[in-house]
C-alpha cells in the first residue's frame, strides 16, 4: 500500500527528492524543506488524518525524525515518513498546524534530543525542568547525568 502512495507522491511533486526505503515497515524519505508540503498533500488529498507517533533517533552521522501516519477510513498499515537533520544545527519544520496532536510530541523530541521544530507555537521543555542543560537521549549523554549531590552523599 505504501508503494501506491509513493507513486502518487512522485507524480504530484516531481521536483522534490523522495526515496522509498524497503524493510519490515517500508518508509518514504523526505527532505526537511519539502516536508510541510508533502504532509499537507497527504492529509488533505490522500486522507491521512491521524498522526500516531513522532520519534527522534540519534544516528552517528545525522539525526532523524520519523512520523507514523494512519488513515481512519482506509485499511491498516502505517505510512512512515523519515526526515534527516544535520548534527550541528538540527531543525525540522513543525506539523502542529496540520495535526494538533503533534504538539506535545514535538516538545518531547526537543527536550530529550535537542531537535528544534520551526514554527512550533510554544517550544519549551516538557519532561525536564526549565534551565536544565543537556539533552539526555543523545548518545553522548551518560545515563547517570553529570552532577548530583544525592549520589555523592549516599554512595
Amino acid at each position: 500500500m505504501s508503494r501506491e502512495v509513493y507513486e502518487r507522491l512522485v507524480e504530484e511533486f516531481p521536483e522534490t527528492s523522495l526515496e522509498y526505503l524497503e524493510g519490515k515497515d517500508p518508509a518514504i524519505s523526505v527532505k526537511a524543506d519539502d516536508l510541510f508540503e508533502v504532509a499537507r498533500h497527504l492529509k488533505e488529498k490522500q486522507g491521512y488524518d491521524y498522526l500516531s507517533a513522532v520519534t527522534g533517533v540519534d544516528y552517528p552521522d545525522r539525526f532523524e525524525v520519523i512520523y507514523h501516519l494512519y488513515s481512519m477510513k482506509e485499511g491498516p498499515g502505517p505510512l512512515i515518513l523519515k526526515v534527516s537533520a544535520s548534527k550541528e544545527q538540527p531543525e525540522v519544520p513543525s506539523l502542529v498546524s496540520l495535526w494538533p496532536g503533534a504538539n506535545f510530541q514535538e516538545r518531547e523530541v526537543y527536550d530529550l534530543m535537542g531537535i528544534r521544530f520551526a514554527g512550533h507555537p510554544d517550544l519549551k521543555r516538557i519532561l525536564l525542568w526549565e534551565g536544565y542543560e543537556g539533552h539526555p537521549l543523545r548518545k553522548d549523554f551518560p545515563i547517570e547525568g553529570y552532577q548530583t549531590i544525592g549520589q555523592e552523599e549516599s554512595s
Partner: peptide, 10 residues
C-alpha cells in the same frame, strides 16, 4: 533543594 542546571543543589 533547588533545581539547578544539572541536578539538585542544596
Amino acid at each position: 533543594p533547588i533545581l539547578g542546571p544539572r541536578g539538585l543543589v542544596l
